[in-house]
Design a protein around this nucleic acid. Structure first.
Lengths: 213, 213
DNA sequence: GTCTATAAATTGATAGAC
DNA sequence: GTCTATCAATTTATAGAC
């Protein structure tokens, strides 16, 4: 919400819509619940956003803009792979802690890809993987990284290890952590280091190159 | 469907319900579409399953029964960790290839945990992680595995690396694999080896222990 | 068991007063 | 801009004929 003079009601509607849509999904969300959450009349939703579809679009764009941020820019920085990966994992886990339900929301909506709207938003989100791939290839030539590393596979591994424990929490919490919330929080808090160590260890020609960095 | 004399219609309804519910989710599924898919009248859905809720329950139970199978039993086998993990990853990836949409369906429904039904089904699914943990701890004492390994973290890592590339396919396909289906299939087909190598390499005191096994 | 017809409830959207 | 009242469409569920 850039402009200060933008109506307060419009902002409250969007905030409420974020909560409801992200938690219940597009199909499960109810306009009435969004209105109640915003503390305003249901008609105002249509006054400001025309339709449920349009309101959902606004929320989805927000979700993409928050989770596909300039985060990938760090891969274009001058740092070496070890440093870049460490920073990425750290910032990404922080982001997931701040918005734990957004990844599931996005994945859920993208999975039932009825429209091309979602695809377009993602394509226009500015996410670019090339910088990361170049950085990895560069450090392979340097001899810092093993030669058989595939940058895209590596990236998928990093994202998988960061995101899945968050979106799978309700399930993993039951079958692995015995529904112990505190235990799961501790597990997630320690995750930065775990993932970083696992990844770096798997790609470095010499692990001490990283530890001494 | 155990009994042979069980009505054919009931079976067709359940099959159709699986398709529609798994693809569209509980909220997005329509009884009419299920009836059309089954090629029968909509009223028969209620005749056999009383309500949409009950039909959903049947589908959810099926989804759990298929994806939380006796797979974890292999961890109780006499094999060592390396072998057990390799077999688990292989069979799990095969299962994911056979039912690529079920994990997303389960996670989506568990995430919007309105009822306690889903939790109960999971708890009663027979999934047991203790065998795996004991096996790992046993091989740590053996000296096969590094001492600082946490079995539960290890298990989460394995599952994350296997499942996320499948449920995240629509998203990763766009941002990483440029919407190239063939490329993504190749990536997934190579995944067994990739995940196994990464995991084993990260836990073995001596990687040759595994390669010579 | 299977169908048609219809009820009953929900929900997105609009009209119009203020 | 915000509200009340209401429409129109959708959708789950049931009643009853065959």
């Amino acid at each position: 919400m850039q402009e200060k003079d933008k109506n307060n009601t419009e902002w409250r509607i969007l905030e409420a819509a974020k909560k409801v849509f992200v938690l219940k999904g597009k199909d499960g969300a109810r306009m009435q619940e969004i209105a109640d959450t915003a503390g305003i009349n249901k008609s105002l939703l249509h006054y400001y956003y025309r339709s449920k579809e349009k309101l959902f679009h606004a929320v989805f764009r927000f979700a993409i803009s928050v989770s596909a941020p300039k985060m990938f820019e760090i891969f274009s920085s001058g740092a070496n792979s070890f440093n870049a990966i460490e920073v990425f994992i750290s910032e990404y886990m922080d982001l997931l802690k701040k918005h734990p339900f957004i990844p599931m929301f996005i994945l859920g909506e993208v999975s039932k890809k009825e429209t091309h709207f979602v695809i377009d938003v993602i394509k226009n989100s500015g996410v670019n993987v090339d910088g990361f791939c170049r950085l990895i290839e560069h450090d392979i030539e340097n001899g810092l990284l093993r030669k058989n590393i595939n940058p895209k596979e590596l990236l998928v591994n990093i994202i998988s290890l960061c995101v899945f424990p968050v979106i799978g929490r309700p399930l993993l919490g039951v079958i692995i952590f015995d529904n112990d919330t505190a235990k799961y929080d501790a597990f997630l808090n320690d995750r930065k280091r775990q993932v970083t160590d696992l990844i770096i260890h798997s790609i470095a020609t010499n692990y001490s190159n990283y530890q001494n960095k």
